[in-house]
Amino acid sequence: MLGSYRAEMLKLRKRSAVWVLFGAGLVLSLIFGYLLPYLAYTTGDDSPSTEGVPRAEVLRGMLPERVIDNTIGGYPIFAGALALVLGAIVIGGEYTWGTLKTVLTQRPRRGTILGAQFLALGTVIAFWVLGIFVACALCSVGIAAAESGSMTWPSIGALLQGLAGGWLVLMTWCLAGAVLAVAFRNVALPIGLGVVWILGIETLLAGVVSSLLPGLKWLTNTLPGTNAGSLVFSVTTMTPSDAPPGVRDAVGGPRALLTLFAYCALFTALSLWTTRNRDIT
């Protein structure tokens, strides 16, 4: 298992697409979390760019106290889509390159190899979360220093809870990409379907259900995106009015946590079962 894990890490570390996805997630977080708010803060007195939000509020949103909000606020949708792409390219690539047969004829059992792949993906996502957190923390410290804002940090517990929640959200989407890649033995189709689901369908469904079919709310409340958004909402200090797209309090934190765990387990089990029982041609 250790050897397989090291092999998977070597593959991920040397793959430029993995770095590109990470870079995209990082840049997006910084732009939406700090750059745009900071521009709004410095340029606007009471200009329309702040849309009525008091400047003091805008500044507070960028200080260390809110670092977790900015780190994981974009995870349910934007970073989630990137994580899904990661899962799809890593697992789907094995099929499109035909390398799965090379790997599966080495020695380890199929389940061991897929397990090592998922473990390696989990590791990479942990680094993503930490990397984005560190960058956000540096920005918030910089802004706090420049604008003489407060340097209070969230408690260690709140930090850990936020980072772990963020990791789980990304991992769910990553495994969703992986299971789709196993199902279609491909890269492009899972990415297409997955991204359309995350960015479009789920939001659309939630909207339609809440306005036209409130009786079906229980159904949308079981969907992965809804639960990802709810988990992020419950581990941050956001309010429904200042939450970014996708983050909302549809279900409670513990329930969202359990649902995401269930999705991860389901995606893993489906991938494992299929990989172990299917002909590799």
Partner: peptide
Amino acid sequence: LRLLAEYAG
């Protein structure tokens, strides 16, 4: 080859 060597020990 390195990574295959890792898998195969």
